[in-house]
Amino acid sequence: MQFTSRNVDDVESTWQQYVPSAALQKVDPQRFRFDWRSADLGSATLVRYDLAAQVHSTAEPRDQLLVCRVDSADAHVWSDGQTLDARLPWLTDGTQVQAQWHRSARVRAFVFDREAAQERARQFTGDDGIELRALGLAPRSAAAAAQWERMFHYLDAALGDETGDDRLLLSEFERHALMMTLSTFPTTLAESMRRPPQRSGAPMTVRRALSYIDENAHLPITVDDVAGASFISTRGLQYAFRRALDITPTDALRRARLDGARRDLQNGEGASVRAIARRWGFSHPSRFTAAYREAYGEAPSLTSDPARRVTPGEDSVRP
Rank of each mutant, 00 (worst) to 15 (best):
186 P>H: 05
186 P>W: 07
189 L>C: 08
189 L>W: 02
189 L>N: 09
190 A>W: 05
191 E>W: 10
191 E>V: 04
192 S>F: 06
193 M>E: 13
194 R>I: 07
194 R>K: 14
194 R>M: 15
194 R>V: 09
195 R>K: 15
195 R>H: 12
196 P>I: 00
196 P>T: 01
197 P>C: 06
198 Q>A: 07
198 Q>M: 07
199 R>I: 03
199 R>S: 07
199 R>K: 15
201 G>P: 01
201 G>R: 01
202 A>K: 03
202 A>L: 09
203 P>N: 12
203 P>I: 05
206 V>H: 02
206 V>G: 01
206 V>E: 11
207 R>P: 07
207 R>I: 09
208 R>V: 08
209 A>C: 12
211 S>R: 15
211 S>A: 11
214 D>P: 00
214 D>A: 15
214 D>L: 04
214 D>V: 08
215 E>R: 08
216 N>H: 15
216 N>F: 02
216 N>P: 06
217 A>L: 01
217 A>C: 09
218 H>R: 13
218 H>I: 13
218 H>G: 03
218 H>N: 08
218 H>L: 10
218 H>K: 13
219 L>R: 13
219 L>Q: 12
219 L>E: 10
219 L>I: 10
219 L>M: 12
220 P>S: 14
220 P>Q: 15
221 I>K: 10
221 I>D: 00
221 I>W: 03
222 T>A: 04
223 V>T: 10
223 V>P: 05
223 V>Y: 05
224 D>R: 00
224 D>K: 01
224 D>E: 12
225 D>R: 00
225 D>C: 02
225 D>A: 05
225 D>H: 06
